[in-house]
């Protein structure tokens, strides 16, 4: 049918066009800008310069990158530790309950993340809901100092990013053939050993997806450490934003973004290479 061919071409070119226009081209522009020189008033000068990339080796910036990676890693691990059991329970529950539980995971999405972060402030602050309730119930005497601490930041990050971990995990665990688990126990493996040797390896794709979906945004999220953490540490996201909006050093902002993205890309490449190579056998 000629019509369907035209339609197909239209849709595909539309999608490709969209990706090119709003995805590929901006990234290319960014990469280009990162290699230019900064101009105090014109913002950028059409002169090739590796200055921005060279400045990335500054120890202060190195420390900032390290802290950002650490924070993102912690957030990812916490989301995994919380998200996996939850996803497991949802996957094993009967369909009706599962649907309700998943709905509860999705509902926060209907509200903007920034607003939700401010809502967390209202909950966590010294005279907020949490402290007022705990004092009212007599559990504590003085308000808990959660606001403006690392704990508050992690609460915010997990609250925001947990659904991204739960959903891929749920998909992977749901697909798991529970007869394999029975076979494992039949062969003498305890529940824990079965979990380690069968469930984890077979749900690994879900784990990786979940981790990626949490780690990468966590790396760039600056408003949560700002609002909940008191903005005492500069993370990658803050740095890039400051470069673009305050310091007006576009090449530096571009260079740091591109550098980080490239690093992520390389990590992923190494991981996938490894996966492919060892995909043949999983050594016990």
């Amino acid at each position: 049918m000629k019509d369907s061919l035209i339609f197909r071409r239209l849709v595909i070119s539309g999608i490709l066009g969209w990706i090119a226009l709003f995805g590929a081209i901006p990234v290319l522009l960014l990469t280009g800008v990162s290699f230019l020189q900064r101009h105090p008033s014109d913002l950028i000068e059409a002169v090739f310069s590796m200055e921005s990339y060279a400045r990335l080796s500054d120890p202060a910036i190195g420390s900032m990158l390290f802290k950002s990676i650490m924070m993102a890693t912690m957030a990812t691990l916490l989301c995994l530790l919380i998200g996996y059991p939850f996803a497991y329970i949802v996957a094993r529950a009967n369909k009706c309950h599962a649907r309700t539980m998943l709905l509860f995971v999705m509902i926060p999405f209907w509200t903007n993340t920034l607003i939700r972060t401010y809502a967390l402030v209202a909950v966590l602050k010294a005279d907020g809901f949490l402290n007022t309730a705990l004092i009212f119930l007599g559990i504590i005497d003085a308000p808990l100092k959660i606001m403006y601490t690392q704990t508050a930041v992690f609460i915010g990050l997990i609250y925001t990013l947990l659904p991204f971990m739960v959903l891929p995990l749920y998909a992977a665990i749901e697909k798991l053939d529970h007869r394999l688990l029975e076979a494992s126990r039949d062969l003498g493996a305890s529940r824990w050993t079965t979990f380690k040797k069968i469930t984890i390896p077979l749900t690994m794709p879900g784990i990786v997806s979940g981790c990626m979906l949490v780690f990468l945004p966590a790396l760039g999220m600056f408003y949560i450490p700002d609002i909940l953490g008191g903005a005492r540490t500069m993370f990658l996201g803050n740095f890039v934003r400051d470069q673009f909006l305050i310091a007006r050093d576009l090449p530096m902002g571009a260079a740091s973004s591109i550098a980080m993205t490239s690093l992520m890309g390389i990590m992923l490449l190494i991981y996938y290479r490894n996966l492919r190579r060892s995909g043949r056998t999983v050594r016990l």
Partner: peptide
């Protein structure tokens, strides 16, 4: 001074003052 600072806030600093943080 830096380690003594609890919050950096340019958006709504009155919030931290009013809540006693």
């Amino acid at each position: 001074l830096m380690p003594m600072v609890r919050v950096f806030d340019s958006d709504s600093p009155k919030q931290a003052l009013l809540s006693g943080e």
